[in-house]
């Protein structure tokens, strides 16, 4: 009886401070980032008409724990003109494991320098010998005010074949 009480009491007082800490440690699990919003990237004039992609920094207000950083770099995208006033956008984050892809002018494709995934210039589909489980993540775009390119910027979970936004 005495021993059992000791074990119970000892367990309780030992676990109590851990319990208080674990609740706080798990705080990020309860947080969600807001819906992705359209961000002004550039204007149509900045994109070559021949369909060669250009890399752009995405700037937006960034919330980071207690801070809010106004108009700061939150990521990058490749933009490509596919018609006179039509563009296509890929997130630079490789869907394999999150390195940044690069456009290769000679091969006319995208390469991830980490694990050598390559992706099709137009569709973003991964080449058959790529380790990536899916093709590049395209982003919603819209043209406004006669030439402003707006992109709905968001990131996606990597390593899986499904394109699943991080929320």
């Amino acid at each position: 009886m005495k021993r059992a009480t000791c074990v119970c009491l000892g367990g309780a007082v030992t676990l109590a401070p851990f319990a208080a800490g674990v609740v706080v440690l798990c705080d990020p699990l309860r947080r969600k980032i807001g819906d992705a919003e359209f961000v002004l990237i550039t204007t149509l004039d900045a994109l070559p008409v021949d369909g060669v992609p250009r890399k752009f920094t995405v700037r937006a207000d960034k919330e980071d724990a207690w801070n809010k950083f106004p108009d700061t770099a939150v990521g990058a995208i490749y933009l490509r003109r596919i018609a006179d006033s039509k563009v296509h956008a890929f997130n630079v984050v490789c869907p394999h494991l999150g390195c940044a892809i690069e456009y290769r002018g000679e091969a006319k494709d995208y390469l991830c320098p980490c694990h050598n995934s390559t992706f099709d210039l137009e569709t973003g589909t991964q080449s058959p010998d790529s380790p990536s489980a899916r093709g590049l993540d395209s982003l919603e775009t819209k043209i406004e005010n006669g030439g402003e390119i707006w992109v709905r910027f968001q990131n996606f979970h990597t390593g899986i074949s499904e394109k699943k936004p991080i929320v």
Partner: peptide, 27 residues
């Protein structure tokens, strides 16, 4: 556990403690 949420610098120490206190569940 506090260490995992604290940031020691003149512009972030108070702010991170504020975040622990006011924003983090159970902080």
């Amino acid at each position: 556990f506090l260490w995992a949420a604290y940031s020691p610098s003149a512009q972030t120490a108070w702010e991170s403690v504020y975040f622990i206190e006011e924003e983090m569940t159970g902080g």
